[in-house]
Design a binder for these strands. Sequence first.
DNA 1: ATAAACCCTATAGTTAACTCTAGGTCAAGC
DNA 2: GCTTGACCTAGAGTTAACTATAGGGTTTAT
Lengths: 134, 134
Amino acid sequence: MKYSISEVAQKLNLTVYTLRYYDKEGLMPFVERTPNGTRLFKESDIDALKVIECLKSTGMPIKEIKKFIDWCSDGDSTLQQRYDMFLERKAAVEAQVEELKQTMKLIDHKCEYYKTALKAGTENIHKDNKIGNI
Amino acid sequence: MKYSISEVAQKLNLTVYTLRYYDKEGLMPFVERTPNGTRLFKESDIDALKVIECLKSTGMPIKEIKKFIDWCSDGDSTLQQRYDMFLERKAAVEAQVEELKQTMKLIDHKCEYYKTALKAGTENIHKDNKIGNI
DNA sequence: ATAAACCCTATAGTTAACTCTAGGTCAAGC
DNA sequence: GCTTGACCTAGAGTTAACTATAGGGTTTAT
């Protein structure tokens, strides 16, 4: 089964603009074309795009992702780099989770703060109070 | 105890450029000035900046954060909005954690993929194999 | 008293990641 | 055979969040 660019955009919740932009940035050298130039995506291309989206969601910039794609094209000689990169990404995600935990702490605290303030009708109950001072 | 802009920058791991930019965007209307215009940060200003950093790390854009700061200036009449906003942020962070879990799944999978490929010396062992096809 | 090290504003420049427009090709349906 | 709609490229425009520069004012140490 092959897919057009708009089908892939829909599947991955991206725009066709974005997909063409990724292609221009060298993130999709594997996508085939019809004789007249129209992109034809196969299943494995969509899987690769999912990996790209995954890397993006770790905060990796597109230029770094391109490096990875280039390594993939280079074959087995780059296995170590690619492994190292994923280990690095794992660490990055773990750090993000840790940061979100801290963020959540403060947010929960603020939720409590406003809940009690609302009940009292005023923020003043938190003046000089432990809950107001983080 | 009062702090200069560069001290605050150091404390919060931001640049003075960033702090002045935040001020220009209306995120710090509470910071006092000396007669000649130099900013003087007090402890509570730093706490407020920590809340701003917290909101930023939930992915909230600066214009939205400004709305919150404005609500703070408006006093008790905006307690409900502020409470709702933090509930919304809580949901946003929970969604981010959920997404990171999915991301981590794929990354762990890829770590395994490359680990075994490295051991074998080639990616080919994953051709037509469950581990290669996500 | 003068240079270094801060501070300030206003404004210009940068970067990443899109997002859109203009101008064109091509296949399908009426 | 012509219109409609999906595709294409090249390149311009946008947006957010900084980041830097120019030009100028204080305070501090020698």
